[in-house]
Amino acid sequence: MAIEHDYFGLVGDYWSETVEYADQRVEVVLDTDGDDVELTALDVAATLVGELELADDELRQSFVSQLDSKSSPIVKYLDTVLDPELEQADDIEAAIGRESGDRQVDALRSMSLVRVDLRPDADEPGDAFAEFEYALAPDETDERLVASIDLEREIVDVRFEG
């Protein structure tokens, strides 16, 4: 049985929309079983869609703060995509639209937010309520940096997918 929501409409198994902000087109997907989701979780998901730019900024700030840890998925992602021997190195360099003097920070700031998966049935603290998928030169590379946040926008996982 499906549930009705003011923002998402009739919620069954899958809802998708392209959201535009800051010269980006982001695919936002709501993936849930309409029977197992609470209206309050759908409200939080709708608010997150409306505040996508703010949530994106918060995540990028967190990524920058993790650059000191050589074992972090952020550093592993950057080491991979910024490798000058990479076949798409020229495309990646062209995608870095900032030059502050810190190449890693410039790359993080230049990444595209490609997709956001919302899972409102994961509504307990520590559950992956939303996944934000990032890429530098997303049309040219398969490498992705994926950050999962919980209902309160706390990061629960960051991983590098190559």
Rank of each mutant, 00 (worst) to 15 (best):
D90H: 05
A95K: 04
V64I: 15
G126C: 03
T80S: 10
Q66T: 11
D117P: 04
D36S: 09
K70Q: 10
V105Q: 04
G97A: 11
R60E: 07
A89C: 05
T80P: 01
Q66Y: 14
E99S: 09
T80F: 15
L48R: 15
L67Q: 06
A46Y: 01
L82E: 04
P120D: 08
D56N: 13
I92F: 11
E87P: 01
S72Q: 12
F132M: 09
S110D: 02
S62K: 14
G101S: 01
E93I: 06
L118I: 09
S62W: 15
A128C: 08
T47G: 00
D83W: 15
L118Y: 13
G126P: 04
Q61M: 11
L48I: 04
D68H: 14
L108M: 05
D83I: 11
L86E: 09
T47L: 02
V49F: 02
D127N: 12
V64Y: 11
L82Y: 07
A107T: 07
P138V: 12
F129W: 04
A128P: 10
Q66D: 09
A41V: 00
R109F: 12
A45K: 01
S112R: 11
R98S: 05
Q104D: 10
M111W: 07
D43F: 02
V81H: 11
D102C: 02
E87A: 09
G50V: 02
P138G: 07
D102P: 00
D79K: 08
A130I: 11
G50F: 00
V44S: 03
A55R: 12
R115M: 10
P138K: 11
S100A: 02
S62P: 02
R115C: 04
L52R: 00
D57N: 10
P73M: 13
K70W: 14
L39T: 09
D79P: 00
G97T: 14
G34N: 06
A41D: 01
A46I: 01
L82Q: 05
D33W: 06
A55D: 03
A137S: 11
E85Y: 13
D90I: 08
P84C: 09
D102S: 05
A41H: 01
L113W: 05
R103V: 10
D121I: 11
A94F: 15
Q88N: 07
D123C: 10
E93W: 15
D68P: 03
F132Q: 06
R103M: 08
L118M: 09
L54R: 13
E58V: 09
D35M: 12
S110P: 00
L86W: 14
T80L: 13
P120V: 07
S71A: 12
F63C: 05
I92H: 05
T47N: 01
G126N: 06
L136R: 08
E38G: 00
L113S: 04
D127A: 13
L108N: 04
L42F: 02
A107K: 08
D79L: 05
P138C: 10
